[in-house]
């Protein structure tokens, strides 16, 4: 079945079976391996991507459900050779350890920052509650999100 959707801002079409997981279509058919598989049953958030601006677990989304939707993966966050501010914050403040959970955290954090540019600590923890870090590096992840620079600050760097 031919399935068309918008991927990181560009129109995309893939030939896939309707129940193929969006996760597998992204990683194997479209070669976007930034999105990771952890548990495969919706608990760990490693496979988080945005569908129409909302963070979801791509291991539980049959690709047929994204027909006509806007999908954004971690690869779509950097613009014009510059990291997304939250990616830069993870680099600056040690938000990543082994790295397998990082794309999911970054995407979930990017969704949060898009709707709430200056979230308080509780809001950050709530927004990242669906993402597990097996290195247990949560504090630095939360610090990285809290210290993500606003657009103006970023421009002044």
């Amino acid at each position: 079945m031919k399935i068309q959707f918008e991927l990181n801002g560009a129109p995309t079409a893939v030939e896939a079976t309707p129940m193929a997981r969006l996760l597998d279509v992204l990683r194997e058919d479209l070669r976007l391996t930034g999105t990771k598989e952890g548990c495969g049953e919706g608990e760990c958030g490693a496979c988080t991507v945005l569908i129409d601006g909302r963070a979801i677990n791509s291991c539980l989304v049959p690709v047929v459900q994204v027909r006509g939707a806007k999908v954004q993966t971690v690869e779509g966050l950097a613009r014009d050779g510059r990291l997304h501010p939250v990616q830069q914050a993870f680099v600056d403040h040690g938000g990543a350890q082994c790295g397998i959970c990082t794309p999911g955290f970054v995407v979930a954090a990017a969704e949060l920052l898009a709707r709430d540019p200056q979230p308080d600590a509780i809001t950050i923890r709530e927004a990242l509650a669906g993402n597990l870090c097996r290195c247990t590096g949560y504090q630095k992840i939360i610090d990285s999100v809290a210290r993500t620079l606003s657009g103006d600050e970023e421009a002044a760097r």
Binding site: G42, E43, T48, R54, I56, N57, A129
Partner: peptide
Amino acid sequence: IAGPQLRRM
């Protein structure tokens, strides 16, 4: 219910 991603789904 569940976590943020699952609540959106």
